[in-house]
């Protein structure tokens, strides 16, 4: 088993971004390009009327309150006190959110690198009470979510990387 672990460790080492030239293609290939956002768009928080989910994400339940993340856009609040007829209460807009949990009447949500705290005593009208800046390194910010792929190197001057999309690349400089 230690043998395998060593090999695994080796594989992980080689999965990092490598700009040496021996493996490079000098032609078009498929891979990933970063999706950038401006910092100002990250903090566009607000409460909206209930609406259908667009990109269903993780769920969380506490008592009769069911929460579902809408991947990278926010959190749906759903009353399941009658689970045969759940009622959607509201949508809390939180850009680049993926994780949710609750203690007492406080909801914790990630917002890119920050942790936000909302009071949800009134789930129809959650209110932001606290922001902890830069507590999470965003987990897709450095390279694409798959290995053995080429990608366009991140250029910080273009903004913050909030995701990746597949694309055809010409002479990509980065690989993982």
């Amino acid at each position: 088993m230690k043998f395998f672990l060593l090999l695994i460790a080796g594989a992980l080492l080689f999965s990092s971004c490598d700009t040496s030239s021996d493996w490079r293609f000098n032609s078009a290939t498929s891979g990933y390009v970063p999706v950038y956002a401006k910092a100002v768009d990250l903090e566009n928080i607000g409460v909206e009327a209930a609406k259908p989910v667009v990109k269903p994400g993780k769920v969380y339940v506490i008592g009769n309150l069911l929460l579902q993340n809408d991947v990278n856009s926010g959190v749906h609040f759903i009353d399941v006190s009658n689970p045969k007829q759940p009622v959607k209460l509201s949508f809390l807009r939180v850009p680049f959110s993926t994780e949710i949990s609750v203690k007492n009447n406080y909801l914790y949500v990630n917002n890119y690198n920050d942790l936000l705290v909302f009071t949800v005593a009134d789930p129809a009208n959650p209110q932001l009470v606290k922001r902890l800046k830069n507590v999470f390194p965003y987990h897709n910010s450095e390279y694409p979510p798959v290995s053995n792929t080429y990608f366009e190197c991140v250029d910080p001057s273009k903004g913050i990387v909030v995701g990746w999309k597949s694309a055809n690349l010409t002479d990509p400089k980065c690989r993982r």
């Binding site: 993780k58 769920v59 969380y60 339940v61 506490i62 008592g63 993926t98 994780e99 949710i100 949990s101 609750v102 203690k103 914790y108 990630n110």
Partner: peptide, 12 residues
């Protein structure tokens, strides 16, 4: 107590 799923990254 609240509960998340088996794929969560947050745990209270």
């Amino acid at each position: 107590a609240g509960q998340g799923g088996s794929l969560a990254r947050f745990a209270v």
